[in-house]
């Protein structure tokens, strides 16, 4: 079970800020494929991965990263702080 978090327009497209996902995905990309296959709103949110960033347990990583031991995976657009 992994906590998936969504921020900014990813949250808006999917329609919720977080959810628990039952998955055996090995990598972030595998998890994305599972989510995409669920419903059109997920497919819309994950349409262009170059427009997205991902963090595992609050550390930025990339879509090829392993989910071994991961508790929390967050998806969001490039950050606009400052």
């Amino acid at each position: 079970m992994i906590d998936c978090l969504y921020f900014a327009w990813v949250r808006e497209r999917i329609g919720l800020p977080r959810e628990q996902v039952e998955t055996s995905a090995a990598t972030v990309l595998d998890l994305v494929e599972e989510l995409r296959a669920r419903e059109p709103r997920y497919a819309a949110a994950f349409e262009d991965l170059s427009a997205l960033r991902v963090a595992i347990d609050q550390e930025l990583t990339d879509f090829g990263a392993s989910l071994a031991g991961a508790r929390e995976v967050a998806f969001f657009p490039p950050m606009t702080g400052g």
């Binding site: 900014a8 963090a55 969001f76 490039p78 950050m79 606009t80």
Partner: peptide, 20 residues
């Protein structure tokens, strides 16, 4: 600006848009 997880949204009278 680019590595702290903040996202800005501009709120107009009718619309709102995420800052890219």
């Amino acid at each position: 600006k680019s590595r702290a997880p903040f996202w800005k949204k501009e709120i107009g009278p009718q619309d709102a848009a995420w800052v890219e």
